Structures are given as structure tokens and as C-alpha cells.
Simulated scan of single mutants.
Amino acid sequence: MKVVGGRAKMLLQIVTAAGVLLTTIFIHGTAVMLLFHIGRGPLTGTQKLAAYVRLGVTGFFVIGFLIAHIIEIMVWATVYRLVGELQSFEEAVYFSAITFATIGYGDITLSPEWRLASAIEGVNGILLFGWTTAFLFKVSEIWFSRRDTDHHIVRS
């Protein structure tokens, strides 16, 4: 009987974590689209912008993604509080942040009933940080490539 209960608890963790993961992907996708929409103008006229202006707009993107990551961390923290795993929201945010960033100090842990969810949060963080990195890399490639400054890009 205990095995059935254990499987049900594991399934609850996986379903809950998958729901949170999909929520954070939606949040991050919205952030990517919004930041791209805002930066579309500067992205298409790179040769007209000074390097320090491009760097400033890149900083804007970084702050935008930082806000997105904080929101995503807080979504996980909210779930940990709702299921009663952590004592305070501050503790939940701290735990979520170190888990999302895959630092994992181990000073705060979840009970065996919910620790699988934290592993899924770590995977979620890796994926979303990778998505952010890919976006910022592409922006940097567009804005700081020698091809752009040498006007070798063929525009249609």
C-alpha cells in the first residue's frame, strides 16, 4: 500500500512541477517577445548606433531578463509555500533562487515528498538561462560583429 502512495506523491510532484515549468516557459517566452519587440528598431539599424548605445540597450535586455527570472523564481517559491514545504516566503524565494540557478547550497532542503520538484526546477533554470544566453548572444552577434561595422551584410 505504501508503494502506491509513494507513486501517487511522485506523480503529484511531477505534474505540479511540469505545470510550473510550463508557466515559467510562458513567462520567459513573453519576456523574449516583449524585449525583441522593444529592441527591434535598434536591432535593425545597428550601423547607426554608437557602440556605447548598443551596450546600453544590451543592458536593458539584461535587466528585462533579470526581472523575468525573478518572476519565474517567485512562481516556484509560491508553489513551495502553497504545498507547505517552506516556512516563509523569503525562505521559499531563497531556496528557489539557489535551486533555479543550480547553486544548491543544501542549507535548505525540501521533504522527500517534494524534492523531485526541486530537481525539475533546476532543469527549468538551466533551460531558461540558456534561452536568455542565446538571445543575448544573438543580439551581441548582430550588434558587435565586424561584418556589421564593415558593411558587409547584404540587406534585402
Rank of each mutant, 00 (worst) to 15 (best):
L86N: 08
V62W: 03
W76T: 06
G56M: 12
I103H: 02
F137N: 09
A134P: 00
T16R: 04
L35K: 06
T24L: 05
L55W: 12
S145I: 11
A68W: 05
W143F: 13
L21N: 03
T23W: 08
V15G: 07
I71T: 06
G106Q: 10
R147A: 15
D148N: 14
L66H: 07
L116H: 04
K9Y: 01
S96I: 03
G6H: 02
E90S: 10
F61L: 15
S111F: 00
F137G: 07
T132D: 12
T24P: 02
A97T: 03
G84D: 08
T24W: 02
A97Y: 00
I67W: 01
L34P: 00
Q13R: 02
F144P: 02
W114A: 03
G29R: 13
V4M: 08
G130E: 11
I126Q: 05
K9A: 13
I63D: 02
A119Y: 03
V83Y: 01
G84I: 06
M10E: 08
Y52M: 08
R7E: 06
I98D: 12
A117W: 00
G6C: 03
R146G: 14
Y105A: 13
V75I: 07
A68T: 11
I14M: 08
P112V: 08
T102R: 09
F95A: 02
P112R: 12
T133L: 15
V62G: 05
L11W: 13
T109Y: 03
W143Y: 12
T102W: 03
L11R: 15
F135M: 15
G19M: 08
L12W: 04
A50H: 07
G41W: 06
H152V: 10
V57M: 11
T23G: 09
E113Y: 00
G130A: 12
I126V: 11
M10I: 03
M33L: 13
G45T: 11
V93Y: 06
T23Y: 05
R155Q: 08
Y94G: 01
G104D: 05
F135T: 11
G59T: 10
W131Q: 11
E85R: 06
V79E: 13
S140W: 09
G39S: 15
P112Q: 11
S88L: 03
W143K: 14
Y94N: 00
T30S: 13
V15E: 07
Y94M: 01
L82W: 13
K2A: 13
G125L: 13
L35I: 14
A134C: 00
P112D: 10
K138N: 11
G41D: 11
A68P: 05
V32L: 03
F89K: 07
H37A: 12
V57S: 09
H28I: 05
H152E: 15
E90P: 00
A8F: 05
F95S: 01
Q47E: 10
E141D: 14
I71P: 01
L49G: 04
A101I: 01
